[in-house]
Design a protein around this nucleic acid. Structure first.
Lengths: 142, 142
DNA sequence: GGAAATTGTTGGCTCCCCAAACAATATCTC
DNA sequence: GAGATATTGTTTGGGGAGCCAACAATTTCC
C-alpha cells in the first residue's frame, strides 16, 4: 500500500532532501537549516521586517521564532534593531556575518538544488514545483 | 529566490499534507501519525518482524522506535511477542485493536490521499510519486 | 484617558530524532 | 566447548522544532 501513496513518497523525499541540504551546509563556517536559510532570504529582501510579520510569512508561531532568531543573532547573521515607529517591535536586518555569508548560502543552495534534481529531466523541476503547490492547495483549503 | 526552489516547495507541501493527515485521523478512536501508520502497515504485511529490521525498513535508529512501539502497544495496536528463535528479539504482530483499526486507518488514508490530490489532474499523482522518487534518488546517491 | 489589542519573550508541553552505554543473548573462532 | 565478538532492545541524555498560555511594555481605539 505504502509505495502508492503521495504522502509517503513526499515524506521520504523530504527527509532525503533535508539531509542533502545539511550535507551541503556542513562545509560552511556557520551551517544553517532550510528554515533558517528561508529566514535569511526573507529578511534580506524585506529589511525592517518585524518578528510577527516574519512568523506569519513562514507560517510558525511568534514564540517559535524567538530561539531561532536568538541563534542567528548570536552568530551575527541577523540583527534586531529597535523599530523607529514602534518601540515594542524589532526591525530585522542582516548582520555583518549574514551579509557576508548569504551569497555563499545561496550558492550552496543552488548546488544542492542541482544535485537533488539531477535525476529529473530538463524542465521537470518546474512541473514538480507546480504539482507540489497544487498538493499544498488541496491539503490546505477547505 | 525561495519560490523557485524544489526543496522549499517540498517542505511547504509536506507540512500541509501532514496537517491534513492529522485532521483526517482526529476522528479515530486512536489517532496515529503518518509514521505510525507506516509501521502498522509494515507489521501487518510482515508479521514477526524484529524491531531492528523495522527500524532499518523505515530508516530510523533502533532507539527511536522504542517509545513509538511503546505507545502503539499501550493502545493494543501492536504486540511484542517473544521470538521463537532468538530470545533477545521481539516478533512484532498486530494487536487486537490494530487488527480492528487498521482497515479504518487505511480508509482514512485513502480519503486523505484523494483530498490532497484533488487539485491534480487524473494520473498526475503517479507522475508526482515518480518525480519524488527520482528526487530521493538524486539526494541520496553519491 | 481608559479599554482593548499587539509585540516579543518566557515557561511548559509534545513530538521526533540521534548517539552512547548496558545487560542479555547469539554467533563466531579457535 | 570456551572465550571473544556481535547483535537486540532499552535507557539515558541531548538537540531541534513546534504549539499554547501568560506577561510586561507599548500602541491603538473609542
Amino acid at each position: 500500500m505504502l509505495p502508492g501513496l503521495v504522502g509517503y513518497a513526499l515524506r521520504r523525499a523530504q527527509v532525503a532532501v533535508f539531509q542533502d541540504f545539511a550535507r551541503e551546509m556542513a562545509a560552511m563556517r556557520v551551517p544553517v537549516t532550510p528554515g533558517e536559510f528561508g529566514i535569511l532570504v526573507l529578511v534580506s529582501r524585506n529589511p525592517g521586517l518585524s518578528q510577527t510579520a516574519l512568523a506569519r510569512a513562514i507560517g510558525v508561531d511568534r514564540s517559535t521564532l524567538v530561539p531561532i532568531l536568538d541563534r542567528l543573532e548570536r552568530h551575527g547573521l541577523i540583527k534586531r534593531h529597535p523599530s523607529p515607529t514602534d518601540r515594542r517591535s524589532h526591525a530585522l536586518e542582516l548582520g555583518a556575518a549574514g551579509m557576508a555569508l548569504l551569497p555563499l548560502y545561496e550558492a550552496a543552495v543552488r548546488r544542492h538544488e542541482r544535485r537533488i534534481q539531477r535525476r529529473l529531466r530538463a524542465g521537470e523541476g518546474g512541473a514538480l514545483i507546480a504539482a507540489l503547490d497544487l498538493l499544498l492547495d488541496g491539503a490546505t483549503s477547505r
